[in-house]
Design a protein around this nucleic acid. Structure first.
Lengths: 179, 179
DNA sequence: CATTGCTATGCAACTTTTTGCATAAGATAG
DNA sequence: CTATCTTATGCAAAAAGTTGCATAGCAATG
């Protein structure tokens, strides 16, 4: 339901191609929403035929051509309508926690091994977010003002990852029998 | 993909009905996995016909009859196979953060109003988890041992909610212009 | 010079999830 | 006494998401 609206929010700032938008889902936006490139391309097509977006093909010589989507007035209307309705509460899903919950059926060493893999992933994710934060902090005050709200979402991403990693350290000690 | 495995993990401990399992998704398990009752009933049916579960109807006089599902050896095998494969990294999706990210297009008062609603939800969720924690802490050491791993998942739930609420307080001040 | 990775788009089949509806009896609140 | 809540199950349609495949040229690594 909200992929459409994520795309509208991103396109409300700047026109972009499906590829560009997919890249955003791999970056700072990916913390709170994500979609595969297939899904994005398909959704953009649907949104364009609903009149929410205009599509222009940008011919590139050294790279594949781009389809650049621009939000229309109808698109902005749809976005505003959605924004003024209450957002559905988020639902967290984490397969690793299922494994931990049912970890009695598994040797501790395996649990720890998998925990370590997830720690590595979360560390990577944290440093990516921190890199984006540094870019933000390098901006002038005026520019920062523009990204004030996206920066708030980034801060939640960072503190969530830090919280996860702190929990993982404690958990690792319990699993190792050092607690 | 992991609904099957959540159900297997839960059924590995105790036989349960679809209703029971749905209730668990509303409780402590709901922090890291969830599904509607329709989904659960359907999935249990599929799993039973795959031979992973046995189904017995428990006739109740003052309440509707129950279908109690018990895990089979084949089910335990499927669970073990799944447990020994790496779990997919979690993906977080939060529609409210989309709104905050694109909040420039909305009056601050509306953003704050919605933030407050989500704060209320997260507080409720936190106190539910803390209630479960108190039940755990009231157990004897031996009983606690049995729930050692589920308790670890609960601790992540609690600290995640606390982290979210702390972020929300900061965010509220920024949105109110008091930062 | 071969392989991998990045840019860039998309179809088709399948699985998963959501949403709306349906039934039914006892319990509790106003 | 009426309405809502809880227990208990499920079907069917639609929407959303995943997985596998396909194309194609340029750049960089080895």
């Amino acid at each position: 339901m909200s992929l459409k609206h994520s795309l509208l929010v991103l396109l409300a700032d700047n026109p972009a191609s499906g590829y560009d938008l997919s890249q955003q889902f791999k970056g700072s936006v990916g913390f709170f929403w994500n979609a595969s490139h297939q899904q994005v391309y398909k959704e953009l097509k649907t949104m364009a035929s609903a009149g929410w977006l205009d599509c222009d093909t940008e011919i590139q010589s050294d790279r594949p051509d781009k389809k650049v989507y621009t939000i229309t007035d109808a698109g902005r209307g749809a976005l505003t309508r959605w924004l003024s309705q209450p957002a559905k509460p988020n639902k967290y899903k984490d397969a690793f926690l299922i494994k931990l919950y049912g970890g009695r059926h598994l040797p501790r060493t395996e649990l720890i091994k998998e925990l370590d893999e997830h720690i590595a992933l979360h560390r990577k994710s944290l440093s990516k977010l921190q890199g984006i934060e540094q870019e933000y902090q390098a901006l002038t005050k005026d520019q920062q003002q523009l990204f004030e709200l996206p920066y708030l979402t980034l801060k939640l991403g960072i503190s969530s990852e830090q919280n996860w990693l702190a929990w993982a350290q404690d958990t690792r000690e319990v699993l190792s029998g050092n607690a």
